[in-house]
């Protein structure tokens, strides 16, 4: 999970847990450390198999779309599902994310119930999703 807002991160995590997902969640508040983990972390997706990325677009050091582009251009990662979770509901931005290979785009609504619902449904979606094995 790459999300610079601690509160949002906490809310997302709580709702994912409520949906019954118990996988380890690594939380990063900036793009640099997130990329470092993805590409170099000993238990990161490149070196250590399947993962899923929850991505916020507004990060302090880089744009989320840059991270999305980086992930989707690497062979080992391009099948890794990326879920963009952001406050932007700008059509151009959404299209750009899908063009770059984003799998799901979720707008963070201020209406918390809708938000929680979305996250919980995402959790259900994740529980049935087939995460591809990383080809060694």
């Amino acid at each position: 999970m790459i999300e610079d807002d601690e509160g949002h991160a906490r809310l997302i995590e709580r709702n994912i847990r409520r949906a019954g997902i118990s996988n380890t969640i690594h939380h990063f508040t900036d793009g640099t450390s997130a990329l470092d983990f993805i590409f170099n972390g000993s238990d990161g997706p490149v070196l250590n198999g399947p993962a899923m990325v929850l991505l916020d677009l507004n990060l302090p050091d880089m744009s989320g779309t840059d991270i999305l582009a980086r992930i989707k251009t690497v062979d080992k990662l391009k099948r890794t599902p990326v879920i963009v979770l952001t406050t932007t509901d700008d059509k151009v931005e959404i299209q750009r994310c899908y063009d770059l290979g984003c799998n799901v785009y979720i707008t963070k609504p201020v209406n918390y119930e809708a938000f929680a619902d979305a996250i919980r449904q995402l959790g259900l979606f994740l529980s049935v999703i087939q995460v591809p094995e990383v080809v060694e």
Partner: peptide, 17 residues
């Protein structure tokens, strides 16, 4: 307006919590 929404998501979210 965009950046104001971010904290607002938290306020609403934690209020619900």
């Amino acid at each position: 307006s965009h950046d104001l929404r971010s904290p607002l998501v938290n306020v609403m979210g934690f209020t619900s919590e």
